[in-house]
Computed example of a mutant assay.
Amino acid sequence: MSVENLIKMANQIGQYFSTESDHKLAVHGVRQHLQNFWTPAMRRELKDWQDQNPGDELHALVRAALAEPAAQA
Rank of each mutant, 00 (worst) to 15 (best):
M42Y: 11
P54Q: 11
P54S: 08
N53H: 15
T39N: 01
P40I: 02
L34I: 12
T39S: 15
R44L: 12
M42C: 02
L34V: 06
D56Y: 10
N36Y: 04
L46S: 07
W49R: 01
T39P: 02
D48C: 03
A41C: 01
V30L: 09
P54R: 13
K47I: 09
E57Y: 01
R31L: 15
E45F: 02
R31P: 00
L34C: 05
P40G: 11
D48L: 13
L58V: 08
D48S: 13
F37D: 10
M42W: 09
M42P: 00
E57F: 01
L34E: 01
A41P: 00
D56A: 07
Q32N: 14
H33F: 15
L46T: 06
V30H: 05
E57Q: 15
R44V: 01
G55Q: 05
G55M: 06
H33G: 00
E57L: 10
N53L: 02
Q35L: 15
V30P: 09
A41R: 12
K47H: 14
G55E: 08
P40N: 09
T39K: 12
R43W: 07
N53M: 03
G29Y: 07
G29R: 06
D51A: 14
Q50I: 02
Q50S: 12
N36E: 15
N53D: 08
G55D: 15
R31F: 00
L58I: 06
E45M: 09
E57I: 10
D56G: 06
G55V: 03
Q35A: 13
L34K: 05
W38T: 05
Q32W: 04
L46W: 10
W38F: 11
L58W: 04
E57C: 00
E45H: 06
Q52W: 03
E57K: 13
R31T: 11
V30W: 05
E45N: 10
E57P: 01
W38Y: 10
E45G: 02
N36R: 15
F37Y: 15
T39V: 01
T39Q: 09
L58T: 05
R44M: 03
Q50M: 10
R31M: 15
